Amino acid sequence: MILVYTGNGKGKTSAAVGQAIRAYGHGYKVAFSQFLKRDAQAGEQVVLRKLLDKNFLAGGIGFFRNNSNFDLHRKKALLTLDWIWTKIKSNFFLVVADEILYALGLKLLLEEEIKNTLFLAKDCGVHLVLTGRGLPKFIEQEADLISEIKEIKHPYSKGITANKGIEF
């Protein structure tokens, strides 16, 4: 199945982490990747690395703020996508592509590269989780499950900065 957690609300990565833990708890092989987050940036990475070891990858270099580092961001996104393909071809039960929709929206990954990943996962019988904002129609059509996380209220709108342990 193709599972998508999208929307403008907080909790997409948290939902993907929960999905991964559920599958792992049943003894299934799980791989978890993050496209934009650099290693040691977010709290969930500590737990995922302990749990999944080499089957966890934070493949990004951090926030994409402008095009000055576009080539490096694109290179890291392609390396992360290649890592995902390796896990899919190794018959993992569940592979998470956290923030892949952001990478697509920023043109760090191309539509064709994502389509090929979806088709590969389906051909190999691997469950693939995608997260991020900006769900394109082609993924919506291929997805088996889509959950939209909607922001109703967020402290950022009051000028409150991100809190360690809550937002990252």
Rank of each mutant, 00 (worst) to 15 (best):
residue 137 K to G: 10
residue 10 K to H: 01
residue 70 F to Q: 14
residue 104 L to H: 02
residue 136 P to Q: 13
residue 69 N to V: 07
residue 62 G to R: 01
residue 153 K to E: 02
residue 88 I to F: 05
residue 41 Q to E: 15
residue 7 G to I: 04
residue 15 A to N: 11
residue 70 F to V: 10
residue 3 L to G: 00
residue 84 I to P: 04
residue 33 S to A: 13
residue 82 D to H: 14
residue 33 S to R: 03
residue 162 A to G: 08
residue 67 N to M: 06
residue 40 A to E: 15
residue 13 T to P: 04
residue 111 E to G: 03
residue 57 L to M: 13
residue 1 M to H: 11
residue 136 P to L: 15
residue 82 D to Y: 12
residue 146 I to V: 15
residue 6 T to V: 05
residue 107 K to A: 13
residue 42 A to F: 10
residue 6 T to C: 09
residue 32 F to G: 11
residue 34 Q to E: 10
residue 69 N to I: 03
residue 100 I to M: 03
residue 5 Y to N: 01
residue 118 L to G: 02
residue 2 I to M: 09
residue 85 W to T: 14
residue 29 K to L: 09
residue 133 R to Q: 11
residue 17 V to R: 00
residue 161 T to M: 13
residue 47 V to D: 00
residue 78 L to P: 07
residue 74 R to C: 03
residue 88 I to W: 00
residue 75 K to R: 09
residue 86 T to F: 07
residue 104 L to T: 01
residue 91 N to H: 15
residue 141 Q to C: 07
residue 79 L to R: 15
residue 46 V to T: 13
residue 108 L to H: 03
residue 30 V to K: 02
residue 91 N to D: 15
residue 18 G to P: 12
residue 159 G to H: 04
residue 88 I to M: 06
residue 79 L to E: 15
residue 12 K to L: 03
residue 53 D to V: 09
residue 163 N to Q: 15
residue 28 Y to M: 14
residue 38 R to N: 15
residue 129 V to G: 06
residue 118 L to S: 01
residue 31 A to F: 03
residue 132 G to M: 09
residue 73 H to S: 08
residue 19 Q to M: 09
residue 57 L to V: 08
residue 62 G to P: 08
residue 162 A to R: 02
residue 16 A to P: 07
